[in-house]
């Protein structure tokens, strides 16, 4: 019996070590991220500042400018990765991500529409507008799926189509707005943490942490739903209801993230795949690991974006895709051969 149990224990130990290592890596990269930018600050000064041991000009830069965007990068990276992992389980399609059911473009359209068309509305409402947009897109896809009881593939295809509709709406808004500051929404749409402040953290941290908690609680049910509708129903799961709850959580997570950091579509696709490769498909391990991978990717991308050519910044969304894509392709190539029956 012990002989049989040992690989299981080994797998669990491996996962625990991996999670601790990832966590350490996230912290290190975050500290590094705080040190780079237009003004380079040594890491020891940052640590002193964070623990309130220092009080100078650095304190201002760190506490007012870099720390909030770091916190946002962590929150948004985790949220996008979780959202992607949930959607991949529900749609059972490796290409699925928040983009695929139109969430990102829906959220972007509503948030952008609010900023450009109703500039009087305070920015605090932006996550709400984004959530409405995300829910509109995902809600439409789910409604169609509900009435015609569609397969997962059809769900994904309709989602892609809905995404395109919302995307053209975004393009239309960008072209027609005569706003002299219209480059700001442009930067936001490529997925950037530029100019983020504590007020952005203030409007997003509660929903993001609450939703992440719900996602982690749902992790075992995600395992069941990934077995397909028939098997999951046979195991006593109310599949339509669970699917709705899961997609709702995923939609809200991605929408709030889009509201504060813009569209970083790649994170939601990539982080879950990397996590699955690292710890397997059981969501109780895969979800927290995806979340950490998502955080790492966004923090790293944001740090590199500021380190390359200060004071110029490159959007984290662009860099996340640039750094992540080769790694992602590598993972796909090495798993593809093993997955064949």
């Amino acid at each position: 019996m012990t002989g049989l149990a040992s690989p299981r224990t080994r797998a669990t130990n491996r996962a625990v070590i991996l999670i601790v290592a990832l966590l350490a890596l996230v912290i290190c990269v975050s500290l590094w991220g705080l040190s780079v930018g237009a003004v380079a600050i040594p890491v020891d000064v940052i640590v002193n500042t964070l623990f309130n041991l220092d009080g100078e000009q650095q304190t201002y830069i760190i506490m007012k400018s870099r720390l909030p965007r770091m916190v946002l990068a962590l929150l948004a990276g985790g949220a996008l990765a979780l959202s992607g992992a949930i959607i991949q389980a529900v749609i059972r399609n490796p290409l699925a991500s928040p983009n695929v059911i139109g969430i990102n473009s829906g959220a972007a359209l509503f948030a952008l529409g609010m900023v450009l068309l109703f500039p009087a509305i305070p920015q605090v409402w932006m996550p709400l507008a984004a959530c409405l947009g995300g829910l509109c897109a995902a809600g439409f896809v789910m409604l169609v799926a509900h009435y015609r009881s569609l397969s997962a593939v059809h769900l994904a295809l309709i989602g892609v189509a809905v995404g395109f509709v919302f995307e053209s709406g975004v393009d239309y808004l960008l072209i027609t707005s005569n706003d002299s500051e219209s480059s700001a929404p442009m930067i936001w749409l490529t997925g950037s943490l530029w100019g983020r402040t504590w007020s952005h953290v203030g409007i997003s941290w509660i929903p993001m942490i609450a939703l992440s908690g719900v996602a982690l609680i749902l992790s075992y049910r995600l395992d069941l739903i990934a077995l397909g509708e028939a098997t999951a129903t046979g195991l006593g799961l109310n599949v339509p209801r669970q699917r709705l709850i899961m997609l709702f959580v995923a939609t809200m997570l991605a929408s709030v993230a889009v509201a504060v950091v813009g569209v970083m579509g790649f994170i939601g696709l990539m982080a879950p795949h990397i996590a699955r490769r690292l710890v397997g498909g059981s969501h109780r391990l895969m979800l927290p690991v995806s979340m950490l991978v998502g955080m790492l990717l966004v923090v790293l991308a944001d740090g590199i974006g500021r380190a390359i050519a200060p004071p110029i910044e490159i959007s984290a969304g662009i860099l996340a895709a640039l750094i992540g894509a080769p790694f992602f392709i590598y993972i796909m190539l090495t798993t593809a051969s093993e997955q064949e029956p």
Binding site: D223, G228, T231, T233, L235, G236, R277, G280, G281
Partner: peptide, 29 residues
């Protein structure tokens, strides 16, 4: 589901799930 078990004709094979994990899902109900 504690009374009737049902196995579909071609069940979806989940990605990166071990035999033991799959069998464990049978305990879900």
């Amino acid at each position: 589901a504690r009374t009737i078990a049902y196995l579909p004709q071609s069940p979806v094979v989940p990605t990166a799930i071990t035999v033991e994990q799959l069998v464990g899902y049978g305990r879900a109900p």
